[in-house]
Amino acid sequence: MTNLLILIPVALLLGLGGLMAFLWALRSGQFEDLDGAAHRILFDDEPINAKPDIKKDTPSS
């Protein structure tokens, strides 16, 4: 019987962990743009917020 008392909470916690991970992914918008995510990975990127050293203005403005 005692093994039940350990194994059941362990099983439940594992399941709960999976559920939490899924809900977190959902909340943080990971299912919003499945097409985009599939392609984004192909672009190895310099950090997006890095400002370029040479600031060149838009030619016609």
């Binding site: 985009g36 392609h39 984004r40 192909l42 672009f43 997006i48």
Partner: peptide, 15 residues
């Protein structure tokens, strides 16, 4: 047109 357009627009704006 494609994912590169997404990349371009995001980068132009982020800079």
């Amino acid at each position: 047109h494609c994912a590169a357009c997404v990349w371009l627009i995001e980068n132009v704006l982020a800079r």
